[in-house]
Design a protein around this nucleic acid. Sequence first.
DNA 1: CAATAATTTTTTGTATGCAAAATTCAGAAA
DNA 2: TTTCTGAATTTTGCATACAAAAAATTATTG
Lengths: 237, 237
Amino acid sequence: MDSIQARAAPPAAAPLVERRLLHEEVIDRLRDMIVQGELAPGSKLNERVLCERLGISRTPLREAIKYLASEGLVELLPNRGAMVAPLESETVQEIFAVLGSLEALAGELVCRNASDADIAEIRALHYQMVAHHARGELAQYFRYNQQIHIRLVECAGNATLAQIYRGLNAHVRRARYMANLSHERWDKAVKEHEEILDALSARDSKRLQSLLRDHLANKLVLVMEALNANEPRTKTG
Amino acid sequence: MDSIQARAAPPAAAPLVERRLLHEEVIDRLRDMIVQGELAPGSKLNERVLCERLGISRTPLREAIKYLASEGLVELLPNRGAMVAPLESETVQEIFAVLGSLEALAGELVCRNASDADIAEIRALHYQMVAHHARGELAQYFRYNQQIHIRLVECAGNATLAQIYRGLNAHVRRARYMANLSHERWDKAVKEHEEILDALSARDSKRLQSLLRDHLANKLVLVMEALNANEPRTKTG
DNA sequence: CAATAATTTTTTGTATGCAAAATTCAGAAA
DNA sequence: TTTCTGAATTTTGCATACAAAAAATTATTG
């Protein structure tokens, strides 16, 4: 029983870091399970099963589910519980349209507001990513790739923007679009990142916006391919 | 005891409209109370008090609070419950920056995707609004004003965009920025709406975007004034 | 055998109970 | 008075209990 548990240990001392609340722990844990694909899009969330898996009671689980429903990762089915939000190609296209707007805004703001240290940090992430690309380590590459985009938006200095961006990004990430990435396209994506980093370093807002837009368009193609590969069935199925 | 109650009436027949779930009812009810200012920004949400007021138990209330926390209208305080999200001028400015991007996108999409019926509906709302302006009915004017903006974004045909827009809009609306609207500014706002309607009718995307941006900028000024009027105290207080 | 009806089982929605944490408040010390 | 201190009270977080709804299973009929 090495699962999450409430009030297990006696108070050793004043906890330096606030003890995390169970339902918050569960929010993060569930979100991870959904984004990582452990809980597949469209699959039903059985409370009993999840409670056993997480070692908690239904109350914090249900609270976490409500939170994620508002985030859009979960859909509530009245009297029938909840399911992982399906990954419809239509919704994905909608999300990309919004992401485009948000990245454009982020591109403008980050050039104006990011500190040199911020940009240095993004550069460091970039070189990590390039190294993983050179070694053909796709999963690690993907991880740093994500981090770069997230960090770029965060460094724009608009927390509201960053939060919305992260939420939409999580939704799309479930498509596992990196799985079938050709060498050619991979190389191209890295090249695009080089240019993005250049524009950011020069704080060339217009160029950065344009590069981000093109990069996102290419990513959309990837995502749609992944989607069509996994669920080519129409609604008649 | 005419409050919301669970499973009160015996099944008269198959309910034509799905019986709403208690926690969903509470989500809407709480959101209204927050946006209407019945629950002030920064005020603590006492579960006992709210349960009594709504005539429900703590479980659905807490679930609703979690939902609204993800929406951003409520902030969770570990081991101390929750409070209505404060209305910081910094956050408001962030939100307006994002709203600007979203309205720009909406302006583009609505010109491309809205049906003539959609535009006719917005025009009808516009004339209702104008009538209330002529009669000096501020509250009603405000209501239609809101509806026009919401409907415009909805008619862009991107549900994700519309949902995010509504959420951010709700947050800002709490500022009650219409309260101290001068006659001069009111007239100007209506003029701006006339132009917006014109551009929409002509499906002139660029002009519409430009008009929406200016209109939003003016609104930001109003909101900031309302904010400074109500909480001019600095963080030292 | 298929199709429907009746029954059992499971699952969900809500209320309630209990313990930990936070808050309040009375009284003592400075 | 103001400022601690510590018990009483309130409030929160989580678990559990119970009833309604849905799903699965069995029984029944054509």
